[in-house]
Simulated scan of single mutants.
Amino acid sequence: MALLTLAEAKAQLNITDTANDTELQAYVDGVTAAIEAHVGPVENRTVTEKHDLSRCGVRQLVLRQTPAVSLTSVSPVLSGGTTYTVASLDLDGPTGVVCRLDGGRLYGPLRVVYVAGRGTVAPTINLAARIMVQHLWRTQYGASRGLAAVGGGDDYSVTEPVGGWGYAIPNRVLELLEPYKLGPAVL
């Protein structure tokens, strides 16, 4: 599952030839990390984490990457520790909260293997990725295409404000991602 395909990026940019495919693919690959910084993992991936739990145990542990699609295994880091079957645990995917179905405590330290991501790419996230590639691709044109006169008020402006670095993510992309935005986290 890709956040955005080369064909989708080319359609967004109205490019029909293959002359820039290698360079454009780098843009397609590059937008994933920036978008996932706002919405969490989109493309499914396996994650392994170590969770050091209280000696008294905890009622729930919170995965560090959300949303989570499924648990693969929850096993002790140290020999002789408790192994938990995935069937005996409940995963709240959007929040990443894992707890025992019987209400008991989890004892650790534990190694948790799970799949983080969204299962499918929401059309709005795909559109945000297309717009972001379009925004970044405009840096190819510069003053030679008459864009030097575009002021900083345009969301697509790729000129750098005086004394600043400009920006890579336009406001319209951030607005599209807002419904999927991660909440604040404490690690």
Results as ranks from 00 to 15, higher is better:
residue 24 L to S: 04
residue 88 S to D: 15
residue 84 Y to G: 02
residue 143 A to T: 10
residue 161 P to N: 13
residue 36 E to S: 03
residue 41 P to L: 07
residue 173 V to E: 01
residue 10 K to A: 03
residue 157 S to I: 12
residue 105 R to S: 13
residue 20 N to H: 00
residue 106 L to R: 02
residue 94 P to V: 01
residue 184 P to Y: 07
residue 105 R to M: 06
residue 76 P to D: 11
residue 50 K to G: 07
residue 70 S to L: 10
residue 97 V to D: 01
residue 56 C to A: 15
residue 131 I to V: 07
residue 27 Y to Q: 06
residue 11 A to I: 08
residue 64 R to K: 13
residue 180 Y to T: 08
residue 17 D to F: 01
residue 144 S to L: 12
residue 11 A to G: 09
residue 130 R to L: 04
residue 179 P to S: 10
residue 7 A to D: 06
residue 91 L to T: 03
residue 92 D to S: 12
residue 59 R to S: 13
residue 131 I to G: 00
residue 16 T to S: 05
residue 26 A to V: 14
residue 93 G to W: 03
residue 147 L to F: 13
residue 95 T to V: 09
residue 149 A to D: 13
residue 184 P to A: 09
residue 89 L to M: 14
residue 9 A to K: 04
residue 83 T to P: 04
residue 172 R to T: 03
residue 86 V to I: 13
residue 86 V to R: 02
residue 51 H to F: 03
residue 128 A to C: 15
residue 125 I to D: 01
residue 31 V to A: 03
residue 48 T to H: 09
residue 113 V to L: 03
residue 103 G to D: 07
residue 84 Y to T: 00
residue 66 T to E: 00
residue 75 S to E: 15
residue 68 A to N: 00
residue 81 G to H: 06
residue 106 L to D: 01
residue 162 V to D: 05
residue 143 A to M: 11
residue 44 N to V: 04
residue 63 L to S: 00
residue 127 L to T: 14
residue 125 I to V: 10
residue 135 H to W: 08
residue 29 D to Y: 11
residue 12 Q to D: 09
residue 106 L to T: 00
residue 108 G to C: 08
residue 43 E to H: 01
residue 107 Y to Q: 08
residue 29 D to S: 10
residue 95 T to M: 08
residue 173 V to A: 01
residue 142 G to T: 15
residue 24 L to K: 01
residue 63 L to K: 04
residue 99 C to S: 07
residue 131 I to M: 06
residue 127 L to G: 05
residue 142 G to I: 14
residue 6 L to I: 09
residue 70 S to F: 10
residue 164 G to W: 11
residue 87 A to C: 09
residue 109 P to S: 10
residue 164 G to L: 08
residue 115 V to I: 15
residue 6 L to Q: 07
residue 102 D to Y: 09
residue 62 V to K: 07
residue 103 G to Y: 12
residue 129 A to L: 05
residue 151 G to K: 15
residue 42 V to P: 02
residue 177 L to Y: 02
residue 13 L to V: 07
residue 169 I to N: 09
residue 162 V to L: 13
residue 79 S to C: 10
residue 63 L to P: 00
residue 109 P to H: 11
residue 38 H to P: 08
residue 140 Q to G: 06
residue 148 A to R: 15
residue 161 P to F: 13
residue 47 V to C: 01
residue 175 E to Q: 14
residue 37 A to H: 11
residue 183 G to P: 08
residue 56 C to V: 10
residue 94 P to C: 09
residue 153 G to S: 13
residue 91 L to D: 00
residue 147 L to M: 15
residue 101 L to P: 04
residue 1 M to W: 05
residue 88 S to Y: 10
residue 151 G to I: 05
residue 7 A to K: 12
residue 76 P to N: 08
residue 128 A to Q: 04
residue 61 L to G: 00
residue 72 T to N: 12
